[in-house]
């Protein structure tokens, strides 16, 4: 019994130490990126991508925020942007589909990297699959001119 407790104590603490050595530098790097205002610039680079999906250009910013900071934080930005930028129902659906497949990508990747996983492979797979999946969804969900005015009210689930 004492052996088991020893094994669990040493093992769990060394796992936490391993994870912390990756998470701390990453979080500091993300705060630096935020403060030098680079996120807005990167969001602009997303414009061609969201155009391929037939989404509004303004969707780039909430998309980037969700990819980097996750769904919990991203949901607030998405709902705010839906109001301010008058995103359509379709924009919202596609944006969320992308994000359920790929969100908080850096944090998740960092934690798995502590266990020897190839981070680049994991990151690229996630973003590529999410892009592809959203592309397919964008062909299936028709442009919804009729739905533009309904972004604030709940519409029954279509298609």
């Amino acid at each position: 019994m004492l052996n088991i407790l020893r094994e669990a104590t040493i093992g769990s603490f060394s796992s936490i130490k391993q994870i912390a050595t990756i998470v701390f530098p990453l979080m500091i790097a993300m705060e630096i990126l935020k403060d030098i205002g680079i996120l807005d610039k990167i969001a602009r680079l997303f414009s061609p991508l969201v155009k391929v999906y037939g989404m509004k250009r303004e969707t780039g910013f909430p998309l980037l925020i969700g990819i980097v900071f996750g769904l919990t934080y991203g949901a607030g930005v998405i709902l705010q942007s839906a109001k301010e930028d008058k995103l359509t129902r379709r924009d919202l659906y596609l944006l969320t589909y992308f994000l359920v497949a790929a969100h908080a990508v850096f944090e998740d990747t960092a934690i798995f990297m502590a266990f020897g996983v190839n981070g680049i492979l994991l990151l690229i797979t996630r973003l590529l699959v999410a892009s592809l999946f959203t592309f397919i969804a964008s062909r299936l969900i028709k442009p919804d001119a009729a739905l533009i005015n309904s972004s604030s009210e709940v519409v029954s689930n279509e298609a």
Binding site: F24, M27, I32
Partner: peptide, 18 residues
């Protein structure tokens, strides 16, 4: 894009979220 300047606060927030 309000360009906040890098400061000690940046480092502090990074450490806090880590």
């Amino acid at each position: 894009s309000v360009n906040k300047k890098l400061s000690l606060d940046t480092l502090k927030r990074g450490i806090m979220s880590g």
